[in-house]
Design a binder for these strands. Sequence first.
DNA 1: AAGGGCCTCAACCGCTATAGA
DNA 2: CTCTATAGCGGTTGAGGCCCT
Length: 280
Amino acid sequence: MVRTPCCKEEGIKKGAWTPEEDQKLIAYLQLHGEGGWRTLPEKAGLKRCGKSCRLRWANYLRPDIKRGEFTPEEDDTIIKLHALMGNKWAAIASSLAGRTDNDIKNYWNTNLKKRLKQKGLDPITHKPINPTGFEPVNHKLGSSGSARLLNRVAKKYAVDVNRDLLTGIIIGKSTIIAEDSQNSSDTEHSTSTLLKTVAKPSARATSPGSFSDDLDVFFSNEEISDMYTNVDNVGLMEELKSILSYAGDIKDSPEYNVSDEMEFLDSWNEEDGLDLENCF
DNA sequence: AAGGGCCTCAACCGCTATAGA
DNA sequence: CTCTATAGCGGTTGAGGCCCT
């Protein structure tokens, strides 16, 4: 595919935006709304490329953008989500109202990464840096392994992952969980109920396998404590691990390596003793 | 006061994903 | 199904401010 250059025209301005340019962009967007970025500069009287306009709006001018220092709660959320997702800045930003992916990325690179290092934690794996100086075992999955595992399981069972609820579970955001549970007809807040809600059957689903139906086979309500009050990502990963063991035929995929996934999950669980809450 | 190094963050670049013709 | 335009993402850059000597 031939990619069209973003700013092929001559005379396109680059660099810092002036207050006048900001005003033109704001005025245009207030009048016409977002979208049509390609043609926006000409219509708005700006000598910028559309991409630059979109970025300026999304990262700086949007009225709902939160300015100022990150709170300790935001720090904590970013660290937890980064441990789960890796450098998925846009996904992390969606859990922090008013913060942009660019903000979070910058904040991570300039502050949080250093803080983790100072605490003796690897900012990529979130594990303690090995004092022997030997490189840790390089798992293929990295820190975003759990998210990829979840996606893989969801794909296998042709379900859409409810990311908001999953995020709620992982960062312990009770409001997200409660909000979602109200949308569920199931009033019993067992782990299997929760996982069923996380993995909503997709309207596009064509696979004969049903993730939701299979869960009852593996999780009895007696065995599973109520995750509503005591949910943690280690528990969630344990359960996904069980599902993965069951879904052995996934390994037929050429890129898939079950032992790598298991090894990763085991290493994840070893982090149980790691208390990120008290790192700062 | 000067200037060199470091830090921050807005902006850019290159790429992928997606929608629609 | 293919192609193109557009949106969005993550990595990187560089201007400007700050701090230290």
